[in-house]
Design a protein around this nucleic acid. Structure first.
Lengths: 341, 341
DNA sequence: CTGTTAGCGCCTTCAA
DNA sequence: TTGAAGGCGCTAACAG
């Protein structure tokens, strides 16, 4: 069952080293010998032992960097750090150490300075969550050109040549939300859509997906109304007050980004004949509380923990394989109150 | 950063072997030496290298068995097999080989005979999906008494002393479904609940959870009606016909177990003013089709693939640690049509 | 009770 | 272009 390099070598009448050269395509093998080895490999159905391989390879020590911009939500930041922390533990045995760099602004300069500083320290791979700005994109391209793996997570920079992206498909997550809302709200009832900042592609994408799905399920433009939260608590609260004063028969609220709490507070502090169904994103503890209390109906999560964790693990594979499995779009997870029992 | 046994040994003034004895609690170490080693361990913050450990330990070859009863759904069986297959590949490097045993009936005798046969072949651990019958439970107890890990998956045998269980909490999954339904259906509207076979605890549990949640959300007993599908296509179809003839204003159908297709076909072949919302379990390809077509509204999945895969991996940990992390209740995953885009 | 040593299977350097 | 050999860090058997 278990076939080793040694056995293949014996079968082919060569040494372990030669088989290794063939298996790992290191070149410097005479074609006819290579042919013979390949046949032996096939005949014995050799598969390399990943554990042994990892152990031997762990001599090549490497340093990678996880870089991200802090958000306003401490919980969110903590989940990212937790993912990094767990990945760090996992990667240690592979001889890979992880440095963390946190940016405080969305200024391209800050990112680029931090990247350069990290490279000075001998970093040879990045997992990075950064705004999609031309300067950053170019910087990434220059790193990739130097054969350095760069993986974007959570928020993609698709214009760049990043090795791959780990995160949610925002448009799809908006569609999932739209589909949920369409099942909750009935003909003649109205929906309020909270968009963050329209200039941010990421915010608009979810709303686009949401609206697409509403249309698909037969809703009319008059049935929904978009407002901009500016990602600000007070703005959100006031907008909701205004809209609920103007309109009636609102049965759905979609919060495409934080601050979910503003919406929760608004609903708790006002009473309605028919309480509106709330669909929102990301499982912050406060958001889950609203879900449990029945103020919110559904949360769609993107597992930010997994994103930071997984992107770091992919970096390891990138070192071994020169590349990594074509990125990874992590799931769109739906939760209702009963999920947290 | 990386601390090895060797370094700890040097620090404590003993040999690697002795440190190993302390780390792995193999005994035979003089208390004062042990004390010294423990201090060194702490001082250097030693953590064992899992890769190296696994490689060395893989010398101890082991055989485990995955045993399950075939269901009527070929897709379901295939997912179980896929999980086993992937686990097999993963475990190979650990020196663990996996045998599969498939039972055709729910007869305790068949299971017990197959278990005995496996033990003849040198199996030393089981991952098993079996009905909860006293004879099987006793058999499991006798294996566990001989220090053999036995993990139940998908369907638990809680009366037994199985090492742990990997699967969904059925009651909770019913609650999740109930909560969804409660958000879809409004006052005055009715819900039909398809229970499989009431004598099967597993079927009843989901329905209990479902009803619990309906009550919690203020629904009245008159609003729902339970029927028994017998897990049979024709029975299900006929029951639905009858109920829809008798009652009107039915807006929700909950299928707690297969055959979901009977429900799908029924809805496609009849037309209603208000099409009822369908919430059901398990992502068989046919069920997903109905979801995509908009005939079904939500599917709640239990990732059976992951259950068979994960239970086998836990067996590996059980060999190393004598026990394994207190089982694992895998998630309750909610899907709507947009999830499959 | 403790130290020594021979692997586990692969990777990598160094000679040849 | 190839073979030989010395690790990677840990486990386990054996000798003392």
């Amino acid at each position: 069952m278990k076939v080793t390099l040694e056995q293949v070598a014996k079968y082919a009448g060569v040494s372990r080293g030669t088989v290794d050269r063939v298996v790992n395509k290191r070149g410097n093998v005479k074609p006819e010998v290579e042919q013979r080895v390949r046949e032996a490999l096939k005949a014995l159905n050799y598969e390399r032992n990943k554990i042994a391989s990892a152990l031997a390879y762990s001599k090549n020590e490497k340093k990678v960097c996880a870089m991200f911009q802090k958000t306003d939500s401490e919980d969110y930041n903590a989940k990212i750090m937790q993912g990094i922390h767990d990945a760090k533990k996992e990667l240690k045995d592979f001889g890979i150490s992880v440095e963390v760099a946190i940016c405080n602004t969305s200024d391209a300069g800050e990112f680029i300075r931090k990247i350069d500083a990290m490279i000075q320290e001998g970093i040879c791979g990045f997992a990075i969550k950064a705004p999609s700005l031309p300067e950053i994109s170019e910087k990434i391209d220059s790193l990739v050109q130097q054969k350095m793996p760069v993986i974007t997570f959570n928020s993609d920079i698709p214009e760049s040549h990043r090795t791959c992206f780990v995160g949610q498909n925002l448009y799809q997550s908006g569609r999932v939300a739209g589909n949920i809302m369409a099942s909750l709200v009935r003909p003649g009832e109205k929906i309020v859509i909270g968009c963050g900042i329209p200039q941010y592609n990421a915010h608009q994408e979810r709303v686009d997906g949401f609206v697409y799905e509403l249309k698909k399920r037969g809703f009319q433009e008059e049935q929904w109304k978009v407002f901009h939260t500016n990602q600000n608590y007070d703005v959100t609260y006031r907008c909701l007050e205004e809209i609920f004063e103007e309109e009636d028969n609102i049965r759905g609220i979609y919060m495409s980004v934080e601050p979910n709490e503003a919406c929760g507070a608004f609903l708790e502090e006002h009473s309605f004949l028919q309480h509106p169904y709330v669909v929102c994103h990301d499982t912050a503890p406060e958001t889950i509380e609203y879900l449990k209390k029945g103020v919110f109906e559904y949360i769609i999560d993107q597992d930010i923990y997994m994103q930071s964790y997984y992107s770091l693990l992919l970096l390891r594979d990138a070192f071994r394989n020169g590349t990594c499995d074509s990125g990874k779009v992590l799931g769109v997870n739906i939760y209702n109150a009963a999920c947290f029992e």
